[in-house]
Simulated assay, not measured.
Amino acid sequence: MESAQKKKVGSMEVEMPGVVPVSATVAALPAAVRFVSLWALVTPFVLFLVFGVWALLTSALSMFFPQKDAEASALDVGIVCCAALQAAAAVLAVRLPCRRVWVRYALAYLALALTIAGHFMYFAQADCFSRITCTVGMYEYAAGDIICFLALLLGPLLEACQDRVRCRLAQLS
């Protein structure tokens, strides 16, 4: 057994002393992280779809109606930026290969926090007509955020209970 690891460079083998090979074990993706990441990816998709149609309509109607004030425009930019960040955090939570499960949970919490912030910004910019017509959607978003938060909080506990049940069943059989 050699003490130094060898690496092929082109057609030569180079000794690299002190290099420890990285193990290929990657932590399994918890179900709670998968659920929260899906929620954090669905909401920006719907948001970009709605904002795309809205941008087309407002640009076509801008010659007939006055433009929005600066505060509403700033909220629109904040909503779009927050949606892009939450999608990035959700994709990292699912696709990032890591050996520690807490990294996936931390990214899922970040994605959920950005999702909640985006929802609050969306509700803050709505006018009276939008608040009346979109009340059901507002409650659905709030309920989804609460369910995702509870899933993240109870995820490790439920996984530990499942492991104990599996051990008990293995002992009984």
Score class of each variant (00 low, 15 high):
41 L>K: 06
59 S>K: 07
105 Y>K: 06
144 G>C: 03
137 G>Y: 03
144 G>A: 07
76 D>Q: 15
87 A>M: 03
92 L>K: 04
124 A>N: 06
150 L>H: 02
92 L>P: 00
144 G>L: 05
5 Q>G: 08
71 E>Q: 15
62 S>D: 13
61 L>R: 13
15 E>P: 02
113 A>L: 12
79 I>K: 01
94 V>A: 05
106 A>D: 12
35 F>H: 00
13 E>R: 13
13 E>T: 10
156 P>R: 07
20 V>A: 08
48 F>M: 06
18 G>M: 09
95 R>G: 10
168 R>Y: 07
95 R>D: 13
14 V>Y: 09
32 A>L: 02
67 Q>R: 15
141 Y>C: 03
27 A>T: 11
20 V>W: 02
36 V>F: 00
90 A>F: 01
71 E>K: 15
19 V>H: 10
117 A>Q: 07
59 S>Q: 12
144 G>N: 07
39 W>S: 02
17 P>H: 06
82 C>R: 01
11 S>G: 09
50 V>M: 03
141 Y>S: 06
47 L>K: 00
7 K>G: 09
50 V>N: 04
44 P>D: 04
119 H>R: 05
149 F>W: 07
39 W>K: 00
80 V>D: 07
2 E>Q: 05
151 A>M: 03
26 V>K: 11
87 A>S: 05
55 A>Y: 11
165 V>S: 14
26 V>M: 07
70 A>F: 15
36 V>H: 00
112 L>H: 02
16 M>L: 12
41 L>V: 08
74 A>I: 11
154 L>A: 07
17 P>M: 10
